[in-house]
Design a protein around this nucleic acid. Structure first.
Length: 110
DNA sequence: GGCCTGACTTTAG
DNA sequence: GCTAAAGCCAGGC
């Protein structure tokens, strides 16, 4: 109980650890938490993440590097703007060189 | 207490 | 290669 506050809390921790200029995907986080198919829960957690402004939700995109969650932001255009502000090239709601910018906690955070 | 939805991903046909 | 369906878990009604 004390170890597991909730699945969401784990997601928040990982997302907060994402370095600037990097991005990650829901599936990677879900798999890191032990649910390779629980990507939806990550997205659900992000929906609740609005309660914590410290969570860089704009750095979390889907497997294709698409800003699928931009519509949940106060201003969808702001998500892309934040990514570009960190040096991440975004075009047509898609992160360029996403594969190269992908931040894998099991590899990078090791 | 049961059914549906949801910021996704993967496997099967 | 593309389309369809299932799987994940939690929250809302």
């Amino acid at each position: 109980m004390s170890n597991k506050e909730s699945f969401f809390q784990d997601v928040y921790e990982v997302v907060k650890l994402i370095p600037s200029g990097r991005v990650t995907s829901y599936g990677v986080i879900a798999a890191y938490l032990g649910s390779p198919r629980g990507a939806r829960m990550v997205g659900w957690a992000m929906n609740n993440a609005h309660t914590d402004p410290s969570i860089p939700a704009h750095r979390v995109v889907n497997r294709q590097g698409l800003l699928t969650g931009k519509g949940h932001f106060s201003d969808p255009n702001e998500m892309q703007r934040l990514l570009e502000a960190e040096g991440i090239r975004v075009e047509n709601d898609q992160v360029k060189e996403f594969k190269k910018l992908l931040w894998d906690p099991s590899e990078e955070l090791l």
